[in-house]
Design a protein around this nucleic acid. Structure first.
Length: 471
RNA sequence: GGUCCCAUCGUCUAGCGGCCUAGGACGCUGGCCUCUCACGCCGGAAACACGGGUUCGAACCCCGUUGGGAUCACCA
């Protein structure tokens, strides 16, 4: 490798880090890591009316949560106006740009006319050859686009994309208030930061020929481009809030693991044979644009949920014990500052991880391990806590009261004695006990459940169940 | 509307001219396991948008059609 790879993620802070932005960031990050390159974070905040510091923080928070650490930055374009000014002056001096005195109202009017008459809506270049400044008008600076020939974008994903230069118009690079615009700042920054590969969303493909012209006017070499396909909602429209959560941090709040989201996002557009689940190391090792598809992809929350369940199953009990705490608090299962015995929690989690698809589900299930009392599901109570099970529960309670060792094996012996005495099957006893212990009909195995809940709470719950039947 | 991009099961995708009576995954579904629920395992339904070429041979290459998307700002 002769040239060190340098890539950047350049969000504009006009919103939270969303799913689409996160995937763009991820592909940049992966490409950098795979090639031992540099990943730069650059905040494109030249639109001062829509950018906020809160959003910058939110984007940073999202990237950190996903584990997409950057090597340089975050740089802010609003702190780099001097640099842009220098380049604009250079373009003005070399005759590659000019002042335009048309007012935005006039422009808007002409655009409307063009649309209504079916003409291409394009700036007509009337100020190109102006000799004298127009008095009392703050001009904008426009870039002088070539009128003939073609501009070719050599895209790593799309291949050769050819644009006719006559389609391009003289875009504004400096506003009348003296601030530079996007097409100028991206080029200047990418040159200045020595970006080798511009990896971004498909929606920028049409801007690329304009940017290439600016590179050439400035006499700089053009970087490589890779335009990623868009992420769509279930109706194939661009992904938006209508389709559900789009903010990355919303997935944190819903109990997703960051690596699961990363894994899901990377498979939206990229593949490696038939493999579905990847470690980060594998992703870095395998990633390449050769296997990035070019069609837009529909975001499928169901599959993300499945992946999350896989990541929960594969996570260590210790890790889950840490991660679940905020959710236990949020679900009001424990109170803030309350601590649980870690070993015990880990054991409980071990019985629940394969039936929890999110950390919220895990926390909610943990309730019947932790809470003093359980509430009965009405249907479960009717079906299993009745005269038929009353004596079974009473005998079981007695049996359990007589032992101190609540090990799986010992519990099984007690259960066996009760079922044999009454001539019933295990399930005839297990289901009523399950309802007594959890309030519902679904739980881990009855012996492991009782073992972890412990003698004191178990006896109390059986007692309560018997009373509920008699009531 | 102009320009550009895209097109394999409902969804994500494998496929880079013969290994394809099209493979995997999610979801759906039948069964097994079983104290319930899950996990897991075995099986099923489900796709090459359409029409022309090129070729001995096309999901794959070319051209149209249709359908989706992006973009046309003193937003990024």
């Amino acid at each position: 490798m002769t040239e060190k790879i340098r890539v950047r993620f350049a969000p504009s802070p006009t919103g939270f880090l969303h799913i689409g932005g996160a995937r763009t960031a991820l592909f940049n990050w992966l490409y950098a890591k795979h090639n031992n390159g540099t990943f730069i974070l650059r905040i494109e905040d030249t639109d001062r009316t829509r950018s906020t510091d809160e959003y910058i923080e939110a984007i940073i928070e999202g990237m950190k949560w996903l584990g997409l650490e950057w090597d340089e930055g975050p740089f802010r374009q609003t702190e780099r106006f001097d640099i842009y000014k220098k380049y604009i002056d250079k373009l003005l001096e070399t005759g590659k740009a000019y002042y335009c005195y048309c007012s935005s109202e006039d422009l808007e009017e002409r655009r409307r006319l063009a649309i209504s008459t079916g003409k291409p809506q394009k700036y007509d270049g009337r100020c190109r050859h102006l000799k004298e400044p127009v008095k009392e008008v703050n001009p904008v600076v426009r870039f002088k686009m070539p009128h003939h020939g073609q501009t070719v974008v050599d895209d790593l994903i799309r291949g050769h994309v050819v644009f006719e230069n006559e389609q391009l118009d003289d875009l504004i690079i400096l506003r009348s208030d003296g601030t530079p615009t996007y097409n100028l700042t991206v080029v200047v920054d990418d040159v200045d930061m020595k970006i080798t590969h511009v990896i971004r969303g498909d929606d920028h493909l049409n801007n690329t020929p304009r940017q290439i012209q600016i590179y050439e006017a400035l006499n700089y070499s053009v970087p490589k481009f890779a335009h990623l396909p868009m992420i769509l909602g279930s109706d194939k429209a661009r992904l938006s809030k209508r389709h559900g959560a789009t903010s990355v941090m919303a997935y944190y709040e819903m109990g997703y693991l960051p690596d699961a989201l990363v894994n899901y996002l990377v498979r939206l557009g990229w593949s490696y044979g038939d493999q579905e689940v990847f470690t980060k190391e594998e992703l870095i090792q395998y990633f390449s644009f050769d296997h990035v598809g070019s069609a837009a992809a529909v975001f499928n929350p169901e599959k993300l949920l499945w992946l999350n369940s896989q990541y929960i199953i594969n996570a260590s009990n210790e890790k889950l014990a840490e991660l679940v705490i905020p959710f236990l608090i949020k679900e009001r299962i424990i109170s803030e500052g309350e601590s649980l015995d870690k070993e015990w929690l880990m054991k409980a989690i071990g019985t629940l991880k394969e039936r929890s698809r999110t950390l919220i589900e895990l926390a909610v299930s943990l309730r019947y391990y932790i809470a003093e009392e359980v509430e009965y599901d009405t249907k479960a109570k009717e079906k299993f806590l009745n005269q038929k099970s009353r004596d079974l529960l009473i005998d079981l309670k007695e049996g359990l009261a007589s032992i101190e060792d609540f090990s799986h094996q010992k519990l099984e012996e007690i259960f066996k004695a009760v079922t044999e005495k009454h001539g019933v099957k295990l399930k005839d006893l297990a289901q009523p006990v399950r309802v007594a212990m959890t309030g519902g009909t679904a739980s881990p195995g009855i012996f492991e459940l009782i073992e972890i809940v412990g003698k004191k709470k178990t006896l109390r719950r059986l007692e309560k169940a018997v009373k509920a039947i008699e009531a």
